[in-house]
Design a protein around this nucleic acid. Structure first.
Lengths: 244, 244
DNA sequence: ACCTGAACACCGTTCAAGT
DNA sequence: ACCTGAACACCGTTCAAGT
């Protein structure tokens, strides 16, 4: 099924050269390699990434990449880190509810800036500091709202798991949870109605359709409400103002 | 870094044979292929799966698998489906709270029956009915509790996203969210304290450690409480009994 | 310092033969 | 009906050369 043909990649392939680059324009850097990988992903998905396809974008031999990147796995980690570093986190306002929602939304926007790299960013386990920035931001907001350190960590983990789960479904959107577009929705609804399970028939119109924004907002609302309630019930401090 | 050496796989490799099997013992079936793939995953992880390694387990040539499976991608889908089909879902008791927790726990146990296949099961988008069983079960429980069809679908999606997010972190456990084991925890704590970000220093002891069961239960509790509250506030019906 | 040729040990998959 | 040999177009990666 997955036949191997020419990779979806047509860059101007310069005739073979050797030694170091001719001019002083040594355009090859670690960042250039990472960005080339991202452009391959944007165009053809993660599975299209190979040392050879990335190198081709740069008009360079695959083995040259090893001067900047410690193998393919390391390159993919670097891609995830690069994208994660690019997520712009909002300034806290002092309202737990507002801040958690804002963090959730900007995190979504940032990780979906390159949708086809989404699974990478959400799934790769980063040992670096890149992954810690959003973590630190959420923790700050929780602590500022009067949450104890242990509970803050628990709530952070729950919140992030929910957000990541939601986003992962969004980037990998499969039929189990509904499809996008009217014709696909109609087909899916017919399939569900033919499934034989009465509950599925009952909810078919709703289960068949899926709106990314709407679903994200629903999930975010539910989870942020739950977190906020938990924080306020365990620390009966301020209600809205920072510490007036 | 990832050097290719002999795959971690030492099965009795019979001398080459040709034509169909000698005895009537045509042991090769689609299920046998799927189970061989699972055993490769259990032993060496998903990335160790190749048509060749799976075939080796069965004492057969890689190309023979194509008689039972439509390529590698289809094989991995089949693995995910096989494992998902094996999750034993509990009988509903009539209590929304109890039932959602029970479903969450058995879903966890089922998808983690083969931990190294976890990401596959949680991530692959199944077009088949296998993925619909848990979906239908959750929907039934929500509907029985008086939840309307549209809200049931929203709540199902939120609940499953949170559970999947939590389990995905569990199977792919990386350092960002804490590590397992006392010595790794100690090292992680030192790293966090050296990070420079004050919040991280503050919560380091809690962020460094990670207990799978404890974290799952915390997340499950938070989310199930939120779902239950939402259902009860929008349909002020029974409190505990089915419909007495 | 940074590049490539040659080379190695892998891949997934097709197709025409074999029994 | 089900298996394999030969073959093809790919992989990631090492290492010794080249400039």
């Amino acid at each position: 099924m997955t036949t191997r043909t020419a990779p979806a990649d047509n860059q101007p392939r310069t005739p073979p050269r050797r030694g170091r680059p001719r001019k002083g324009a040594s355009t090859l850097t670690r960042d250039a390699v990472i960005e080339a990988a991202i452009s391959v992903i944007d165009d053809a998905g993660v599975e299209a990434v190979s040392m050879r396809t990335v190198a081709r974008r740069l008009g360079v031999d695959a083995k040259s990449l090893y001067n900047y990147v410690d193998g393919k796995d390391n390159l993919l980690d670097a891609v995830a880190e690069h994208i994660l570093t690019g997520v712009a986190l909002p300034e806290p306002t002092g309202s737990l509810d507002t801040d958690l929602r804002a963090i959730g939304r900007t995190f979504r926007a940032g990780t979906l800036a390159h949708p086809r790299a989404g699974a990478l960013v959400l799934t790769r386990q980063l040992s670096s500091t890149a992954g810690l920035r959003p973590v630190a931001t959420v923790l700050s907001v929780l602590r500022a709202a009067g949450c104890g350190p242990e509970e803050a960590v628990h709530l952070l983990r729950t919140l992030l798991a929910a957000v990541v789960g939601t986003l992962l479904r969004e980037v990998a959107a499969g039929p189990t949870f509904g499809v996008v577009g009217p014709e696909a929705t109609a087909k899916r609804q017919r399939d569900l109605e033919a499934s034989g399970l009465p509950v599925l028939v009952e909810v078919a119109p709703h289960l068949a359709r899926f709106g990314h924004d709407e679903e994200f907002e629903y999930a975010l609302d539910l989870i942020v409400n739950a977190v906020t309630r938990k924080v306020h019930e365990s620390s009966p401090a301020s209600s809205q103002a920072p510490s007036a």
